Simulated scan of single mutants.
Amino acid sequence: MLLVAFSASAQKQFEMNLWQSGAPNSNGDSTDTAKVFVYLPSDKAATGRAVVICPGGGYSGLAMDHEGKEWAPFFNNMGIAAIVLKYRMPKGNVDVPVSDAEAAMKLVRANASSWNIKSDDIGIMGSSAGGHLASTIATHSSGDAKPDFQILFYPVITMAPGYTHQGSHDNLLGKNARKKDEKLYSNDLQVTRVTPRAWIALSDDDRVVIPSNGVNYYLELYRHDIPGSLHVYPSGGHGWGIHTSFRYHTQMLLELESWLRSF
């Protein structure tokens, strides 16, 4: 993992290759490289908080703009550093994107002082399949890879047939996934009393990733006494990200901002 310290006052936006000398857990595609795009707020505005952002795309591609880079101004204006992760596609090897997301979390913590970030205030965010990756890191990872909070947009949570997003399931675990792997990566079943707090948003009319994914995750957080905030909008379908065409765009941003200011 490339651990290069940058001065926050010298450079506010830059990109980095995540792995310096070969990435672990190959997916068989040598052209598929992991990167992070780092957006730092001004020194004056910086609160020390940061969020690693995992765009969605069904574990077959990435919506890098409206579920990734275009979120940077929102967070930077709140004094929060935004680190957008271009993770590798699993192609049936779950360890590929998981190792990338864990490495991104560790990278931010390793550069916390030079990026004007507090090492105990680093969250993870994900949309759709990126929400599954984010919730996987929140429920499975430990040490420097474990986030302090999580933000999930219309997330894929379960790998259970009939409830999961089948494309994400097949790309992550394979079409003939073992039942024990489906259970292991059904992240509602992996919530414990040390899972980080969460903000979850989705639409009631989502026909791509059924709402029970995010709702069941919230219920498990509640059952384990983990602070959670669930927002179900009447319409919008799936994949709206930060698009202003989403009918509840302004309300959603205000609710997210209020939650981020609550702790």
Rank of each mutant, 00 (worst) to 15 (best):
V208C: 15
T33Y: 13
T244H: 10
A63C: 15
D181I: 01
D121P: 07
Y222D: 09
T192I: 14
I200K: 08
A10F: 12
D43S: 07
P41L: 00
I226R: 03
Y163R: 04
H224C: 02
A104W: 04
K183I: 08
Y185D: 03
L40C: 12
Q20M: 13
N176C: 06
G236K: 14
S245M: 08
F263Q: 11
L253C: 12
V38M: 13
Q166W: 13
A160G: 08
Y39H: 12
D188H: 07
F37E: 14
Y218F: 14
A177F: 06
S30R: 14
A129G: 14
I124N: 08
N17S: 11
T158Y: 02
A160R: 13
P73G: 12
P211Y: 05
A160N: 10
V94A: 13
L189G: 06
V96P: 05
D144C: 04
G48T: 03
N171A: 15
H140A: 02
G123D: 06
P97Y: 04
G162D: 10
D43I: 11
M125C: 15
V94S: 13
V209F: 06
T33V: 14
N111M: 00
G48F: 07
S235Q: 06
T158V: 00
G228Q: 05
I124C: 13
N25Q: 12
T31M: 04
A112W: 03
S113F: 06
V191R: 14
V94E: 07
M105D: 02
N111E: 00
M252Q: 09
G167A: 12
R247E: 15
A45P: 09
A177R: 05
L107P: 08
Y87S: 04
H169I: 11
Y59P: 10
D181N: 12
G131A: 00
G28T: 02
S262W: 05
G143V: 08
W240L: 00
E70Y: 09
Y233R: 03
G130A: 08
V232Q: 06
N93V: 12
H169S: 10
E15Q: 09
H165Y: 11
A81T: 15
R193C: 10
G214Q: 11
T33I: 14
H243Q: 02
F75T: 04
N187D: 05
Y222I: 08
S258M: 03
D65M: 15
T195G: 06
G57M: 14
G174I: 07
A34V: 07
F6E: 12
E255I: 12
Q20N: 10
W71V: 11
V36G: 04
W115S: 02
Y59T: 05
N176T: 05
S128I: 14
H132V: 11
N77I: 03
V108Y: 08
N27T: 02
H238I: 06
S168E: 03
D206A: 01
D32W: 04
I157S: 00
Q190N: 05
V36E: 04
A104F: 09
S229E: 15
V4D: 10
P24N: 15
I83Q: 04
Y233A: 02
K118H: 14
T250M: 05
M1N: 02
L172K: 03
V215E: 13
S229G: 10
G143C: 03
V94W: 12
T164D: 12
S235I: 07
A177L: 06
Y185G: 03
S9R: 07
K106G: 01
N27C: 09
I124S: 09
T47Y: 09
V84N: 09
A72D: 06
L184V: 02
F6D: 10
P234C: 03
F246H: 14
T47D: 10
